[in-house]
Structures are given as C-alpha cells and as structure tokens.
C-alpha cells in the first residue's frame, strides 16, 4: 500500500479516537456543567446523614451545583461533617439551609440547598450553620405511632 494512503488512514483513526474521547467527556460525562478545577469548599454538620454517600450531588432548585467530597464523623459534637465541593459560579448567602433529601421514592440521597436572604455570601472553607437531617424511616414510623397513641 502507498505510504501516503496509510498515513491518511492512521490520521483518520487517531482523529476518530480523539473524537470518541471528546464525545465521552462532553456528551456522556457532561464535563462542561461541573468543573472541579474551579470550586470552593463548604462544610456542614448533620445530625444524621442517612444513606448519603461521597460523590452524591449537591442541588439547588434541582440543578447540580456541587458534589459531596468527604464525610467524617466528629467525636466533639457526635454528628457527621459533610464536605462539599461547590462550583464557583454559584455562590450562596450565609443563612442558606442545607437538607438531605431523596430523589424519588427509592432514589439516591442528595443535599438540597435553599438560599436564604443574608447579604453576606458563603466563602471557601465556610460552614453551613442551618442543616436538616435525613429522614429515617423508623423514626418517621415511630413518630407516627406516637402521635396516634397521643390522639387516642
């Protein structure tokens, strides 16, 4: 085979490979929405995180604005410290409310942020003061039974 034809085919092959990698990162992986290189860190203490896992999304109004990067247990306050990496395009007021929610009936758990009305904004390394724990099914049932018993 001619040398130039072979070069052409190899060039096409390499271009197809790079195009496939681009499609994987942009179309399948959606690299452009959430770029971890431009991010800031927030933490929050939760009484109970339920089934929250590392890499769970942080959403506000349903839009992914960050991800959970670390979950630790604190022996000082005996609750969970959740570290979140937030997209730096989105900033939130100081009195933002963070709660652990579930997507769908049996879906994965995520952190939902509801913005407050404070003038000051949360900065890198800040701690979200207002948090709401995950719903635990047994506690819900227990509370329900307790209320029923109180009614009677």
């Amino acid at each position: 085979m001619q040398r130039t034809t072979m070069d052409l085919w190899v060039g096409l092959f390499v271009m197809a490979g790079i195009a496939a990698l681009m499609v994987l990162s942009l179309k399948v992986g959606n690299l452009n929405v959430y770029n971890p290189s431009q991010s800031y860190i927030l933490t929050g203490n939760f009484e109970n995180i339920g089934g929250l896992k590392v890499r769970a999304p942080v959403k506000s109004a349903g839009v992914v604005v960050g991800r959970v990067t670390d979950i630790q247990f604190s022996t000082q306050t005996y609750d969970a410290i959740v570290t979140m990496s937030m997209d730096s395009r989105f900033i939130f007021p100081k009195d933002t409310f963070a709660s652990i929610l579930t997507s769908g009936l049996l879906g994965e758990q995520y952190i939902g942020l509801a913005a407050g009305g404070d003038e000051d904004m949360l900065k890198d390394g800040d701690k979200i003061m207002k948090t709401n724990s995950a719903m635990v099914l047994e506690e819900l049932i227990g509370r329900f039974l307790f209320d029923k018993a109180a009614e009677d």
Binding site: A16, G17, A20, V23, L24, V28
Partner: peptide, 15 residues
C-alpha cells in the same frame, strides 16, 4: 497508542 483510542471508540459506539 491504539488501545485507548479503540476502547474509547468502543464505548461511544456502545452508548
């Protein structure tokens, strides 16, 4: 060199 490209093409075709 060609193996990563082939794997990426395989994944894209699969998707």
């Amino acid at each position: 060199i060609s193996m990563p490209f082939l794997a990426a093409i395989f994944s894209v075709m699969g998707v």
